[in-house]
Amino acid sequence: MSDAAFPARAATPARTAAPRGRLLDGPAGVAPTRRMNPKRIMVYGGLIVFSLYYLLPLWVMVMTSLKGMPEIRMGNIFAPPMEITFEPWVKAWSQACTGLNCDGLSRGFFNSVAITVPATILSIAVAAVNGYALVNWRFKGSEVFFTILIFGAFIPYQVMIYPIVIILREMGLMGSVWGLVLVHVVFGMPIITLLFRNYFSSLPPELFKAARVDGAGFWGIFLRVLVPMSLPIFTVAVILQVTGIWNDFLFGVIYTRPDSYPMTVQLNNIVNSVQGVREYNVNMAATLLTGLVPLTIYFLSGKLFVRGIAAGAVKG
């Protein structure tokens, strides 16, 4: 590169030397930097307007959750609280009522943890092995099953929910946390399998061949060669699955009982319960509490989150 650049630079003065007089009339020297022109202002203006659209709901949520009910009734939802109170948060966490229970969202939080942790681990384990088998150990029909799997990702859940109720009932898992875990493993499989398949097929096939020559078997190659070098993609999968499973509502409401409802279902029941006085500040605190786990993951993971959804989406 630098070798090629050198003669070109050397040639320039020689060429400009002859018509120097004429050239000097035109612009010379460093081009002026245009810091802010109308175009830039439009770009930033547009982005700021959209940012307001995206940020205002978050702002309103936080502000409302820190106000007392009297202040809410009097004031402006956009205004910051005159008197900050954390009582709505305490109430949302430990006292808010859903149906018969009045022990707040904490129950839903722990249910969601109990669902999300095993479902994430299991679904990723299963999908990673699937992806590995699909790339490195193809067998007759493996691509057919994979195609069905990817098509399945587009089937509306409503078509499959009832037969799954029957299957779970037959397995004795209906209403339990483990039944819901199984459902999440099944419905997470297409996208996560795709993610791993794409990742493993991007690795040099020679690596796999070298490991076979070195005498490693199906599990040896997977666990000792591929998994240790796939940490980024595992992180992406964890991000995708934790947020996806945590945010699920439909499966939670169908396949669990009230005492094992995940947080989203409980939140909906608190906010949209018909009885009692509506406590908007408690509702907002509950909403923020429910969104806290995926939001934390989102802000901590930054680019990996983007990479995850882009990898899942673009190649799909």
């Binding site: 040099p204 020679e206 690596l207 070298a210 020559v213 060669v225 070098m229």
Partner: peptide, 13 residues
Amino acid sequence: IGMVFQSYALYPQ
């Protein structure tokens, strides 16, 4: 047999 590959195929970790 022992085999040597074009892309080296070393185990990176």
